Structures are given as C-alpha cells and as structure tokens.
Computed example of a mutant assay.
Amino acid sequence: MSRLLASAVLAAACAGVHAQDLATVCHATSSYDLTVEPNRLVFDRPTPAPTRVVLSDGALVTDGRSVALNEEDQDRLAVFQRDLRALMPRVKAVAQHGVDVAMQAVRQDAGSLNLDADTQAELDQRLATHAAELHQRIAASQSTHDWHGDAANQYANQIISDIGPLLASALGQQAVSAAMSGDLQQAAALRDRAGNLMSGFQPRLQRRLQVLRPEIQALCPDMQRLAELQEGIRAANGRPLNLLQIGQ
C-alpha cells in the first residue's frame, strides 16, 4: 500500500520524488506485495518463505498449504481482510490527491516562464491528459505490483518526455528572440531560469506534498490495528505471518 501511494505520486510528480508515505509517517512496512481479488487477498514476495499467503473468509493458505486456525484466529483474520479492503479506497484517495497536487505544482512553476498563450494551453491540455490517465490507473489498480519502481519511473518518464520538450522549446524561442534583439543579458537570464526551474522543482514539490501528511496520518491507527490483528498467527512453516510491520 505504501508502494502504491509513493509510486503514484512519484509518477505524477515527473521528478523521482517520493511523497511522505505510509512507511515514513506511519512506520508501516511490508515485505509483501498485495493483490486484492474479489474473494481473497494474495500476499507474495520473492523470499523468505512463506512467499505466498492467501487469505479468504478467515481461511489461511501459505505456500499452498492450509493452516489450521482456532476460532479466534479465524475471526481475527476475517476482520483483517475486511478492514484492509475498507482501507484501500482511502489509500487511493490520498494518491489521487497527490496527483492533483503534483500537477498543480507543475502548472505553477510553468506560470513563472511567461509562456505564450498557445504553449500554455497546450501544456494545460497535456497535464490534464496525464492526470486523467493516472487517476484512472490508480482507481483501477488492485495490486501493488502495478506500482513497482520501473513502472512508476516509466510513467514519470512518459510525462517528462511529453512536457519537457514543450517547455524547452518555448524558453528557447524566448531566448532566441531576446538574443536577436540584442538583449544578451535577457537571453542568458532565460537559460538560467530554465535551469533553476528544473533543479529547484523537486524540493518545491516535496514542500507542496506536505499537504498530504494529515491525510496519511489519519490512516496510521488503521495500519496499527491491522498489525495487531495478525499478531501471533503463523504460517504453515511455523514462522509469524508479519504481513504488516509497524516500526518505531
């Protein structure tokens, strides 16, 4: 879940910046990926065993072996499944807000470039298209596998490759016009502005994304509750499940 949140904002931000995510704010981590299916939850990881944990209506299967549970543990796992399903839309809502914050940050930074009307309109249209696509991807996603690093970076690179040349061309034209008119100082200033815009975007975005922190903090008690519900339950190999861990 924290991967979903962080990576979604990363992709939206076009800058390889992770928002304050569940791991940072709530100290909630997991070595598993999560896939939400209609009748079960599937947790998987490369190592160590168990590498595949399936929860379904209070039943527990680890690495293909059913785990005998007493009534109390069945009830706890049933509540775990219910509460985790209920939490996912809230995590997605934070990610959706992160997309909007990041796109608005791009618009605000671009506003300092004195773009001509046509370029500004084209930029707005492209950002709106990317935002709509990311919103749709987040809404449709049912697995943290969708947001692994390579996938998130791919989304970010698509956005960069789309809007980067547009802004560079607009600034280049302004610099050429200034140079041709004999204003070499203005031409140099435009080049510096472009460089400062890119180098300073990441820290500015991080500050703007702090608006998400209260929304993420609101998830922390639910994460703590999930961690408590799984305590003491073991896989078929005798190891604790540890589907979710809360650090200090």
Rank of each mutant, 00 (worst) to 15 (best):
L4K: 02
S7G: 14
A11T: 00
A12P: 09
A12C: 08
A13Q: 05
C14S: 13
G16M: 10
H18G: 03
H18P: 05
A19F: 00
A19M: 05
L22W: 12
V25L: 08
H27T: 04
S30R: 11
S30N: 09
V36H: 08
L41G: 02
F43P: 01
P48I: 13
P48S: 14
P50H: 10
V54H: 09
L55P: 02
L55G: 03
S56T: 12
G58M: 09
L60W: 10
T62S: 14
D63N: 14
S66D: 08
L69M: 12
E72R: 12
L77C: 07
D83L: 09
R85W: 06
M88V: 15
A95H: 04
H97G: 04
Q104F: 03
L113A: 14
N114M: 12
Q120C: 02
Q142G: 12
A151Y: 09
Q158R: 14
S161I: 03
Q174A: 03
S177V: 07
G182V: 10
D183V: 01
Q186N: 07
A188T: 07
R191S: 06
R193F: 02
N196C: 04
L205Y: 05
R207T: 15
R208E: 15
L212T: 06
L212A: 04
Q224N: 13
R225C: 06
L226A: 11
A235K: 09
A236W: 12
G238K: 11
R239P: 04
